[in-house]
Each structure stands twice: as C-alpha cells, then as structure tokens.
Computed example of a mutant assay.
Amino acid sequence: MPDPTRAARTSASDTAYALTKDLILTGRLPGGSLISEGEIAHRTHLSRTPVREAFLRLQSEDLLELHPKRGAVVVPVTPGEAEDVLELRQALESAAAARLAGRGLAPRHEAHLRELVDDQRARAAARDVEGFAEVDEEFHRAVVDASGNALSSKFYGTLTDRQRRMSVSALVPRPERLAVLADEHAELLGLLLDRDAAAFAVALAAHLTGTHQPGGAAGRDGGAA
C-alpha cells in the first residue's frame, strides 16, 4: 500500500528541487552564490527536510556544493568546463549535420526547427533572455535529435543544464543581440536543408565561438547564442 506521507514528502522535495534548479539555470543564483535551506524553505513554504533532499539531488548533478551548517554554494561553470562543453557540442551537432546530409531533414523535424526559430524571434522582440536561452538549447538539441542517433541525443541531453547556464550568462549583458542570434539559427537550419554539412560545421563553430569566447571575432562584436 502506498505511503501517503512519503509521497507528499517526495512531491515537496520535487517542488524545492525545481525552484532551486531554475534559480541556478537562469542565473538568478550565479556561480559562487551561497543559498541556505531556510531560504528555499521560506520561498516554497516547506519544511527543511524536503529542501535538504532537493539540495542533495542538485549536489549529485554538480550544481550545488553543500557545506554543513553554512548552506550550499552554487557551483560555477569554470572556463575549462565551458570549453569542454563547447567542444562536445561542436562534435555532436556537426556529426548530426553530416548524417542529415546523407538522409535529408524529415519534414516534421524541419517544421519543429522552424517553429523554434519563430519562437526565438518573438522572445528576441520581447528581450526575454531566459526564455530565449531555453529555446536556444531546444533548437540545438533538436538538430541532434533529427539525426536519429539515439546515443548522441542521450549524451547531448546531459549538457542541457550547463548549456543553458552558459547561454544566459552570455546573453544577459547584450539582449539587443537576440534578433541577430535568431537569424543565425535560421542560417544553420538553411544549411541543414541544403545538406551542406561542411558549411554547417563552419557556421556552428563561429556561432559558438562568438557566444562564449570573447576573443573571437563575433565575441568582440557582441555575439551570443
């Protein structure tokens, strides 16, 4: 027979987990921030027990570092980790483009990617950085999913949290660039439709470098993605 007390505690823990994770991924709790169980308990109107469980989950995901009697520190994305994420994204998305060059982009995937670009344009017009970053992640993940490589899709999914945090960090200082970024995504989609994997890889590299490496040409111009 199900234990209603345990079920309620699990639901409460999920609530605390979702709120805290959203605060981290959207940059409202930037790397290095100290957060206590009491603060989240107050925000969610919960006891500390489910919050503690939520913090343990976030620690296992390398988003929080727990310090007994002090609280938890948001783990920052280090420059080395960011470089690793970009390298993996370049490899996985370029491999997806190469596979799609052989088989073509299915109509349903094309329609989905076009919808995401339209969504990005709307969020750019509203200067909705958090929303744009979320749709940006979905767009790039959809490219990998469209290739039909289930292993690549599964692995790419493990980069989602880091990708969103990096994008928000890059976009917050320059929301005026969001419309340009939507155009870049439309260009990437066009290259997939042209089955030009080589040009896609080059455009993607410039897209990512301009976002996260200030020394790049696009970065000096204020690019982000």
Results as ranks from 00 to 15, higher is better:
Leu86Ala: 09
Pro79Trp: 08
Val172Ala: 00
Arg48Ile: 05
Val51Arg: 02
Arg57Cys: 03
Gly32Pro: 07
Leu171Cys: 13
Leu88Gln: 14
Ser36Glu: 13
Gly80Cys: 06
Val77Phe: 04
Lys69Cys: 06
Asp194Arg: 15
Asp128Leu: 08
Arg9Ile: 07
Phe200His: 10
Phe155Val: 13
Arg174Gly: 04
Glu110Lys: 13
Ala133Pro: 09
Val75Met: 09
Asp14Tyr: 00
Ser60Phe: 01
Ser169Glu: 14
Ala41Trp: 01
Ala82Met: 09
Phe55Lys: 03
Ala122Met: 06
Ala111Gln: 11
Val202His: 04
Ser152Met: 11
Gly157His: 08
Val74Thr: 03
Phe132Asn: 05
Val85Asp: 03
Glu65Thr: 07
Ser60Tyr: 02
Val51Asn: 01
Ala91Gln: 14
Arg43Tyr: 03
Ala217Ser: 13
Pro107His: 09
Pro79Gly: 07
His45Asp: 11
Leu46Pro: 10
Leu208His: 03
Leu86Met: 15
Arg220Ile: 02
Leu151Asp: 14
Ala179Leu: 06
Gly38Phe: 03
Leu100Met: 08
Arg162Leu: 12
Ala91Arg: 14
Gly71Leu: 04
Glu137Asn: 12
Ser36Gly: 11
Glu39Val: 05
Thr211Tyr: 00
Arg164Ile: 15
Arg103Thr: 14
Glu134Thr: 11
Thr5Gln: 12
Ala7His: 08
Asp119Ile: 00
Ala106Trp: 06
Glu87Met: 09
Asp183Gln: 12
Ala98Glu: 15
Ala8Tyr: 00
Ala41Phe: 00
Glu110His: 14
Glu130Gly: 06
Gln120Leu: 15
Gln163Gly: 10
Asp84Gln: 14
Val51Met: 07
Gly190His: 07
Asp136His: 14
Leu178Glu: 05
Glu61Cys: 03
Leu113Phe: 08
Arg6Gln: 15
Leu92His: 07
Asp62Val: 02
Thr10Arg: 14
Ala205Arg: 12
Tyr156Gln: 06
Val129Asp: 02
Ser36Ala: 09
Ser11Ala: 15
Arg57Phe: 07
Thr49Asn: 12
Leu208Ile: 12
Ala225Trp: 08
Val85Trp: 05
Glu83Leu: 11
Gly215Ile: 07
Leu56Trp: 00
Thr211Asp: 10
Thr10Glu: 15
Arg70Asn: 03
His42Tyr: 02
Arg52Ile: 00
Val75Phe: 02
Ala206Ser: 11
Ala95Gln: 12
His207Ser: 05
Val180Ser: 15
Thr44Val: 10
Arg99Cys: 01
Leu171Met: 14
Thr160His: 13
Pro68Asp: 15
Arg89Val: 13
Asp145Ala: 14
Gly223Thr: 01
Asp221Phe: 10
Asp196Ile: 11
Glu187Asn: 09
Pro68Glu: 09
Gly210Asn: 06
